[in-house]
Amino acid sequence: MEKAIKKSSLKVSENGLEKPTAAGKPVSTKRLEVMKTYKIYIGGQFPRTESGRYYIPTNAAGKKLANVCLSSRKDFRDAVVAARGAVSGWSGRAAFNRSQILYRMAEMLEGRKAQFIDELIQQDATKAKAEKEVNLSIDRLIYYAGWCDKFQQLFSSVNPVASSHFNFSVPEPTGVVSIIAPQGDLPAGRQGSLLGLVSVIAPVIAGGNTCVVLASETKPLCAVTFAEVLNSSDLPGGVVNILTGKPSELASWFVDHMDVNATIYCEKDSTVQKMIREKSALNLKRISLYDKINWYSEEGQSPYFIMDTQEIKTTWHPVENIAGAGGGY
């Protein structure tokens, strides 16, 4: 019988060349670190920004977090094209199926909890706070998964009218929503870069819309990792598109794009709010300013968030007024 090959003799060294080792000598524990490239998420793909630019966010201790894509207006334009393309498919799905997919997102997030906690700690959170934020984010997805096929019943109505019509009103998704997510660095834990992000995305897609999201500028790590969660959750490409970059550069493009139907902004900056109010008039966008919401509290989740990006459609359906016709049956 031939001599069995010893595992240790097949070791590959750091520079990729095979290096014979003496039997019994422990394998070197030194290895090259595999760093993650933080890219953006458009149409179910992970491209780099077309501009080729990047910026380096740092944490409070001054540690560089990563080279993060500094998205340009053209990335936003491409993302809107992807989002628009996904509207009919996503809004046309059964509400129950959307619910299943949101639940799946929660499952995927649960499975990658450790990674999110780690990233939040890198971005200045304590371990306890990071854990709390990830748990709340998972619960929020479950919360909106439940609402997917229920909010319609609550907010629709059958209306009394004077003519012989069956008149009813139902909420319908408005279309493409541009979102500038909470920055997540306000004091006292009122926001969270992950929890804020999840809390603004979930109600929008639960209602059948698609969206383009600009992640927190100072704490973007979780947003990119969250895109990986979305990518493995059966969520069709283009329903959620996530960009990283500077709100100061992109905010006006988020609001004046004619193919965007609604805009969500979560900061207190009054000049930006004023700009949003003015430019949204261009094509009568719905605007939602969530600058006073504490995402950690009960007020951070409600079916009314879903309704912020819904339109009410009323139908007049002619019916025979049997009694009014004087009887005939």
């Binding site: 809107v80 004046d256 794009h257 004619m258 261009l282 094509n283």
Partner: peptide, 8 residues
């Protein structure tokens, strides 16, 4: 100077 929509 504004991105357009096919709707219009």
């Amino acid at each position: 100077g504004v991105y357009q929509s096919a709707n219009y």
